[in-house]
Design a protein around this nucleic acid. Sequence first.
DNA 1: ACCGAACCGTACCGTACGGTACGCAAAAAT
DNA 2: ATTTTTGCGTACCGTACGGTACGGTTCGGT
Lengths: 209, 209
Amino acid sequence: MFTEPDQQDFTDRQRAVLDKALELLVEGGEKALTTAAIARAAGCSKESLYKWFGDRDGLLAAIVTRQASKVIPGADQAADMSEAELRAALEVFAKNLLETISGDVSLALNRLAIGQASKAETGLGAVLEKSGRARIGRQTTALLERGCTQGYLNCEDPQEAYSTLYGLVVRDQHIRMLLGASKKASVQDLELAAKNAVKQFIQLYGANK
Amino acid sequence: MFTEPDQQDFTDRQRAVLDKALELLVEGGEKALTTAAIARAAGCSKESLYKWFGDRDGLLAAIVTRQASKVIPGADQAADMSEAELRAALEVFAKNLLETISGDVSLALNRLAIGQASKAETGLGAVLEKSGRARIGRQTTALLERGCTQGYLNCEDPQEAYSTLYGLVVRDQHIRMLLGASKKASVQDLELAAKNAVKQFIQLYGANK
DNA sequence: ACCGAACCGTACCGTACGGTACGCAAAAAT
DNA sequence: ATTTTTGCGTACCGTACGGTACGGTTCGGT
């Protein structure tokens, strides 16, 4: 009806406000994200907030969609690549995934979406799902498919293979961090975990030469 | 300091109230879980709630701890078992894990704990973690260790192996369901997924005969 | 110079919720 | 039979928050 869904480009001003709001969200959870607080932090009036985003839920949705639109495109791999290049690409993916997942913004956003999941059909979860995970998912799935056609991998179903890779990389880290446990692992721990996961993945799906 | 942690036994009445409250939580999220609503649904007075559980956070904690104390002990495996028995035990574990994770109660409880994770140190996440996951985790880890000493598995670190198994079983299903997506898979789908995960796990950690 | 749009700041309203107080009934204790 | 305890029901208080209204100000257009 109003504000076409594909027309989610905001004013610079509005984007700045959304960023400020995200900042508040990250360091205080949803409970700290009141309209008054946002207006104060962003230096705008509540009335403007309502004019721009409709209501509070609209504002939350705007925050999520904005961040979701920021997912890095991720350099496309060359059409031809060696087995080592494939492995390297997978390791980069794994490390990025772990880094993203354990980031403060990601955690805050996921907590927000999960909190809203029970109630009204604002569908924040769907947005996060589609714009976040699914996007890099498709990308990596394509990578796997390419590795498959080049004979390095042996997967009947790339989708399935990707799902496995995800599991091997993330394990139970995501939910544990969402629950508030375990502070950040060091960067080299991350990298090691990524390498390990990829090694196991190739052990499962690698075309045994 | 007060209410010894091991002394979480409540009156029958109080347990009934907690169950009613959990019911409300499952079908309405945290927002529906107001003290008034609980009192009404459980047929008790708000004053009693506050006398019994201190404040709202105490009540939430009581709900979580109560459910967490319900985790099934899970029949201990015999000291000696065949490789097939080990595999069967793992498959049972995997299926149970998937069932639990996708249950309405588990989802509601996890959402609640995640929602509280950002703010005050009620530590619901820690409770869920310790009483829920860690408990079955230790158990299954022990199972893996036994399989290791019997020569069926080849794991230097059972903890690590368990973590991998978890990842292979759960993949990204948990977070997706927490975000509100994808309704239940059928029981046979679950079972198939469990078998598949265990197959992959053994492929990784099985002592190649 | 004037006008209107955008917008800030503040004040305001209605409501919902956490927490408390009190009166009364039923049960338990003496 | 009397007293004490327990707890239900209801009413109440303070506060916090979502949402709205309004006066004043800046600023671009003409």
